[in-house]
Every structure is written in structure tokens, then in C-alpha cells.
Design a protein around this nucleic acid. Sequence first.
DNA 1: CAGTTTTCATAGTAAGTCAATAGGAATTAG
DNA 2: CTAATTCCTATTGACTTACTATGAAAACTG
Lengths: 149, 149
Amino acid sequence: MKISSKVECGIISLVDICIYSNNSVVTVINISARQNISAKYLEQILPQLRQADIIRSVKGAKGGYTLTRPAEQITLRDVINALDSTVLGDVRFSGKEDSIMTDALSKCLWSKMTAYLRNFTENVTLRDLADSYDKLSSETTSAEPMYYI
Amino acid sequence: MKISSKVECGIISLVDICIYSNNSVVTVINISARQNISAKYLEQILPQLRQADIIRSVKGAKGGYTLTRPAEQITLRDVINALDSTVLGDVRFSGKEDSIMTDALSKCLWSKMTAYLRNFTENVTLRDLADSYDKLSSETTSAEPMYYI
DNA sequence: CAGTTTTCATAGTAAGTCAATAGGAATTAG
DNA sequence: CTAATTCCTATTGACTTACTATGAAAACTG
């Protein structure tokens, strides 16, 4: 399946914010350093998540981002819609004129397919993603233990 | 949802072949005329469906295409895979290096999402599409009845 | 065999999309 | 004031897509 880099980076950013904001904000530079994504690129993505009311921004020095609501109330559908409306939007074909054939496919196939996908994405929350990251993260560190002097 | 014109035209062609091949073959020119798709464009799509063993071709004059098997044995997954392997293939991100984060998303999210989509597409057959076309077609003509002299 | 109809293979092109970069304006803590 | 940070808008280069073009190969017809 084809997922744009923008959507992926957006999800990564949200998981990062979810994990690392402890009563404070997370900055673009924080995310950029931890997740190895260009800060300038993130500066383009995060405002879109803000406009979709998924994150809240604090401007100025000591500024940054936090989630607007608990992670279990942010669905994958919210995120994908905020960053790429074509993924879960209606199937659209540029040049094709309407016909009985295109009508039949639209009604019988494409609309059902997108509804099916929307259902999937509605049932995945940011909490799920953060949990699976935490789980994998602890497994990895226990397999390759770190020693502190 | 974004579906390429190639996949759409491929599906339309198959429904057309399914409906109009009565113990004989259907030519590119037939499909082009009925479905209003450039013949040259179809000449690029149909060979791919042939390589995927969905249709059989007969070369030369009086040549054309037929299905290789009954329409109820041709799934949407077969068709999509034949024409655009990225739709149901594993999610791939070009530049991103592997990390715990990308691993977590891959395992917890993308692989499940594509599996979910594959399941949908496996359960739609060419027969279903042809039937829904027939149904809509007869409804349309009964709503706007035709009189024969 | 000659001629016509058809599929087959490959290449090319114009427009559009996407990922990423760039520069600087606005805001705010200290 | 100064530094840190978000915000806004443009631009670029690479890639993809939809389609067109050219002509070869195959096979039926008479």
C-alpha cells in the first residue's frame, strides 16, 4: 500500500509527542533529533495537525506542541485525513466521464472499499501505536541490555 | 482513495469482456468503442492482464481476448496485483532508515492495514462487478424505456 | 501469396505530484 | 533586547502518471 512520507512522518511525530510530553511541550527540534526527520519538513507537517485540532501549539521561546486530547481519542482516521485527504476520501477519476459502468463501479466497489478502510482506521488510536512502540522498545533494550557505570 | 486510471480501465475492460464475449473473443477496438477509452491505452493494459493469466489472447485477424476462467474465479485482488503492485503490496518508504519507530509502525499498523485490504479485495469477484453492472444497466433502461418499432 | 486485421513490444512526452529545502515574519520567555 | 520557537509561502528537483507514437509479429481471408 502506498502511504505518503508526510502521513508517516505525521504519525511518527504524534507518537513521539505522546511519549515525550510530560506536562510540557515537545518542540520540532526535539522530534527532529529523536526521529531523524528534517526539522524544516516537520515545520510543514505539524501545522496541519494543529489545524485539524489534533495538536495544540505554544508559540515563542519555550514553545512547542502537545496533544489536544488523550491519545485514545485520536484515531488514525483523524490523522490521515488531516495530512492526506485522498487516502480515505471518495475515489475520484480525473478524465473519465460518467457512464453506467463508472456508476456501477463507484457504487458497488469504490465506495464500499473506502468505507471498509475508514472503518479500519477509525479503530486504531494513537494510544495503540504508542503502546506498540513502547512494547517493541522495551523488548529491544532487554535483548540488548545497556549497562550504566 | 486513490486508484490509478490504469487499474480502473483494467477493471472496466474485464467487465466488458465478461459481458460481451459470447463464445468468441472481444477486441481492443470493441472495448475502446463501448467504454470510450483510447485503444492505444488499452493495448498497454490488456497485455499485463494476459501476463497475469487473467485473460487469454488470440493474435491476428479475428483475434482478441477472452477470460481464462469463469468470472467468479477472478478476484479484484488478482486484477489489482496485475496492474499496480503497490496497492496491495507491503508499505515501503523510500528514504527512511529502519528504527524502532518504523518497525513498530510497520508491524502494528501497515502490515495489518494491507492484510485487511487484501481480505476485502479477495472477496470481490469479477462476477460481482458484472452483476452490479447488469443490474444498474437494466434499472436505467427501465427508468428511461426504449420503444421498438 | 498478398493484404488486412489484430495483438505485442518499446519508446517517448507532457503534465502533475511529492519530498524536501529555503527565507524570513510573528510571537513570547527571560 | 535577544534567543528560541512556531508560522507562512515559495521553490526546486526528482519521480510518477496517463497517454501517444511507431512499427514489428502473427494469423485469418481470399
